[in-house]
Every structure is written in structure tokens, then in C-alpha cells.
Write a protein that binds this DNA or RNA. Structure first.
Lengths: 163, 163
DNA sequence: TAGACGTAGA
DNA sequence: TCTACGTCTA
């Protein structure tokens, strides 16, 4: 258990292949896939802008993300969307959301990790899904009339299929 | 990252030595030292009773545990002792507290892991401190008049010193 | 200091 | 469903 400060990076992480499975968010951090232990969107500062490096889409938190043949619609962060105690608010185009928007503008690759419920329903597992590009994003209103950001990401071609 | 269901056990864990260091509670779980990712007291059911297997004493949560030459006074769990939002209540002799009391009665060994603030103040590190025996426990009142349990554990002899 | 797609077990 | 000595960044 040496502590290694993994440098953040855009794109592929050496040694990590599509389909690799991890048990904990801290493992994702340890191997350099995703450094945020509790946030879904990770990003790094390049010059003066912040660009997304990776997102984790985890089942079971009520985000209503969708996946269909390499096209993913990912819900932005903030606004207490998944809080059971605080009331929801408008999401803002800041932090991770802003980083994803910037990734789109700069056509920068984003790693996607999918957190799945385990078959035995004890905890989750995280699978590296490969590289995606943010194609568009928009703001919509949820049932309570609050702003929620949606990001459409498309899986780039020539990557191993997920089995 | 295979998921292995480590069997809980009392006493030494094969392959783990005094002084071994870990970065995350989830690592403690992975090697079989302590299976609770967020609780300080771990225990297992033997027959009809629950006996403590391990405790984690982590700095920085306001528990006021003490360590002096192999003698440790560990604060019980519950009562919202470390909550910033909920008001404190009386701790009860249940769950982990009850398990530690039972360990005392049965003279059962308890693994001790110490969570230390890292020198750079970024996160913590967990060091396996060896085997202890619960010598006594008592209930006291904190400044607000609430019941708090204290467990006195003594390190058993003939173990490598902690450097 | 607070916020964020955390974990496991009772 | 809730609690519990989580973990990092802004």
C-alpha cells in the first residue's frame, strides 16, 4: 500500500484495458482512471481551463442515465439530485459540468467507467468502458421544474467491445 | 480486482504483520483485517454471541482515544459522537460496543488498527498495531451529560514493537 | 468547511 | 432504511 500520486491525464491509462473491473472507487483512483472518490465527474486543469478526464456512471442513484449502443446520456452534477434530505435546486454549469462542456468544445476524450450493481446485490463493481467524446449537452427541467444538465457522449470507434 | 469474500476471524491474519500500512479502509477489508468500511468496531457471530474481531482508531474525529505504551482507551460507537448535524445521545451497549464487552468476558483477542493523519495532511494511513485484549470497560458521561463507553485494551506481549 | 454518482451490515 | 472512527477537492 504505497501511496502513489497518480498524475491525471486525458485518454487511455497505461496498463488499463476496456473491460477491466474494479471493486471500489478508491481502486479507480489508485490506477489513475478516476481520482474522485465520491464525485462522478473528474477533471484536470490545463492552462486556465478545466477539462474532463473521466466520468463514472453508477446504477442505483436515480440519475436516469441512458446507454444505447455506444451512445450515453449522462446527467450533470449538483442540485442535490440524489440527496434524500436536501431539496433539489437548479444545476449550474460549473465544476464537472463546465469541464464536460469544455471537453466538448475542445473535442477532448473522456474515459467512461460504469458502476453496476453486483449480481448478488452486495455493493457495486466498476467496469472501464473506454473512451468517449462529448457530442452535445443541453439543460432540461426535471419533474420539479429544476434545471438538469444532460451530456450526450459517443463511444469512439476501434475499441474492444464490452462483453 | 477480483471480489474475494474474506472470512472473518479472530486474531492474526495470515500474511499480515505488525506495522503493515494501508491507505484505505477498503484495503483493510480486502486483506481481512477489518471488514467495516465506515465503522470502527468489527465483529463476528460465533454461535449466538457476537465477538469483536478488530477496531480501527482513527485520528481526527474527536473521539479522544488514548494510547500509552501498549495501553489504549477506545471510545465506543453510537450516540452521534462525531456527527456535526445530529445531537449527541447516550451510547448503548449494543452492536460493536456489546461485541467488545463480550470479547472481554471471553478473553478474546482483538486486532487494533490505527488510522493516522498523513504527514502531508492529505488523507489518512492505517497501520496494523497487533493484538490486544479488552481488560475492562465502563460508561462515563461526556460534557453534555451523555453516556459514552470506554474500553481499555492492553497489547499482548511478544509482538514486534511499532516503530 | 461543506459537498459529492461511497460502502457494508443491522 | 438507517447508521457508521470514509475520502477528496474546491
Amino acid at each position: 500500500g504505497k501511496q502513489v500520486n497518480i498524475e491525471k491525464r486525458i485518454g487511455t491509462v497505461p496498463g488499463i484495458e476496456v473491460g477491466d473491473v474494479f471493486q471500489y472507487k478508491t481502486e479507480l483512483r489508485a490506477v489513475g482512471l478516476h481520482s474522485k472518490t465520491m464525485c462522478g465527474i473528474d477533471y484536470m486543469k490545463i492552462g486556465e481551463v478545466r477539462i474532463a478526464t473521466s466520468i463514472v456512471a453508477t446504477e442505483g442513484y436515480g440519475y436516469n442515465d441512458t446507454f444505447n449502443s455506444g451512445v450515453m446520456v449522462y446527467t450533470g452534477e449538483g442540485g442535490n439530485v440524489i440527496s434524500k434530505e436536501k431539496k433539489t435546486e437548479d444545476q449550474k454549469l460549473v465544476k464537472g459540468n463546465l469541464a464536460l462542456a469544455t471537453s466538448m468544445r475542445q473535442k477532448s476524450l473522456v474515459r467512461v467507467i460504469r458502476g453496476e450493481e453486483r449480481w448478488d446485490h452486495k455493493g457495486k463493481r466498476y467496469v472501464y468502458d473506454g473512451l468517449y467524446m462529448v457530442e452535445e449537452y443541453w439543460a432540461e427541467r426535471d419533474v420539479r421544474g429544476k434545471t438538469v444538465y444532460k451530456f450526450k457522449l459517443c463511444r469512439i470507434p476501434d475499441q474492444p467491445p464490452l462483453t
